[in-house]
């Protein structure tokens, strides 16, 4: 609700700025996706995997982004499920948030407190994804 001189409440202003920022970043990532291979070409491989032979918990994030950039979501999701899902949610969420912020529509607030089941769930998903990466030789 706007105050008498037309300024938005603090939470709305912050939400709108963050929504626009997130949307701009998502759009930029989509616009630059044809150049993803060129950007990723200069990155070194994973030293953890190089020395231990096993994938690290973060392995696959770059390759998932590259697969999504060349519009191959099936490959991304089957080989690197969690990173692919995270990238998809990040881009989609950014587009939705940016659009809602642009239209001055309210944005959902993040909860301050995560239920205990959600915390264990997130840790469990990361561990399962790591095990999957090791098992499939990512």
């Amino acid at each position: 609700m706007a105050d008498p001189i037309g300024r938005q409440p603090v939470a709305d202003q912050i939400g709108r700025q963050l929504g626009l920022l997130w949307g701009a970043v998502s759009l930029s990532l989509i616009a630059l996706s044809p150049l993803a291979s060129a950007f990723a070409g200069g990155l070194p491989g994973c030293p953890f995997k190089s020395f231990t032979g096993f994938a690290c918990p973060g392995c696959g994030a770059t390759r998932a982004a590259l697969a999504l950039a060349r519009l191959d979501p099936v490959h991304a999701l089957t080989h690197y499920p969690l990173p692919a899902l995270a990238w998809t949610l990040f881009i989609t969420g950014g587009l939705v948030a940016g659009w809602r912020a642009w239209r001055h529509l309210p944005l959902p607030q993040l909860p301050r407190r995560l239920p205990i089941w959600a915390r264990f769930g997130i840790v469990g998903v990361v561990l399962v994804n790591w095990a999957y990466s090791i098992a499939t030789g990512v």
Partner: peptide, 10 residues
């Protein structure tokens, strides 16, 4: 302060 501005800190 939570002053509704994240652009200037950015």
């Amino acid at each position: 302060r939570s002053d509704g501005d994240v652009i200037w800190p950015l």
